[in-house]
Design a protein around this nucleic acid. Structure first.
Lengths: 162, 162
DNA sequence: TTAAGTGCAAAATATTTGCACTAGT
DNA sequence: ACTAGTGCAAATATTTTGCACTTAA
């Protein structure tokens, strides 16, 4: 019921780099796998803490950095600038993140390829088009926005907390 | 030699919202105009401080937020998650940011339009494709990377400080 | 055994906020 | 005058780091 696949993969990768497998690292990897999409370090820490409260958040950060260097994990920046991590296993992909309701939708990279090719041809620029999430408004929120005739404001004026 | 255009525009926009024009706001707007591309709040503050050291960074943040609400300024997230601001004047645009050398290159949005249309058609998603910078490697850095046969590592291993 | 890994607390960075004072209009 | 705006300092939030202790191999 766990991810022995990733775990073994990870142990191997760690060994190659003279690193060790530890319960903390295992837990963090499992936590990553238990989320469908991108997760913040904070969320991973909470998930791990729920079982093993003594695991420190700095260990989470250190492990994520390590996993990224090993190529098992990738990170992305979402709208608010918070770093989001996910398993690299499934190959490159993208997310559409709605500014209105926060919903996320997966997106195959094949849709981005034309743009990537264009950038390469025109500018010789090798774009990493999966590094950032694409933000905007989902179908539902677009509809809601149109109702309000709210065509001008770019963001839902985030000053509200008293 | 200054930007009376923007300044007047700003004063008008401020008035419409019951806000006032102040020297600080003027200075911050000028600083924004004096940079070719995107700038961090920090950089704006430094620029302003060089002339008027008593201007506080929190004022910079508050002004930038206000200018954004007024539609005069937009922000973007670059690779490291730092928020970058720029004048909205020139209309929507994008930047290619090189991970290798940090160089920035402007990019017309027209190149992004096909993708935008595709996302709208396929998912009903109204993407804001200017909200994030596109990261990758510029022509020069691509060449350098190929030399090193460095095809596997995704990032230039950022652990170096002693 | 022994170098790698961890927890903890503190530092560094980026941004926001409460509050008393200042200054546009 | 009256309220918006500012400086300051302190609070938040996120991520990093130094160090002594623990542990995988």
């Amino acid at each position: 019921m766990s991810q022995p696949q990733s775990a073994r993969q990870m142990t191997a990768a760690l060994k190659q780099h003279g690193c060790r497998m530890t319960p903390q690292r295992q837990l963090i990897l499992n936590a990553l796998g238990s989320f469908p999409g991108h997760v913040s370090a904070e969320a991973i820490h909470q998930q791990v803490s729920s079982e093993f409260p003594q695991v420190n958040i700095s260990t989470v950060y250190r492990t994520l950095e390590l996993l990224e260097d090993l190529g098992l994990v990738t990170h992305t920046h979402f709208d608010d600038g918070v770093t989001q991590y996910h398993l690299a296993e499934a190959g490159p992909h993208q997310h559409l993140v709605c500014r209105g309701c926060g919903s996320q939708q997966e997106l195959g990279v094949e849709l981005l390829e034309p743009l990537g090719q264009l950038l390469r041809q025109r500018y010789g620029f090798a774009a990493d088009l999966t590094h950032f999430a694409i933000v905007g408004l989902c179908r539902t929120c677009v509809a809601r926005t149109v109702y309000h005739g709210d065509t001008e404001s770019r963001s839902p004026l985030r000053k509200s907390s008293p």
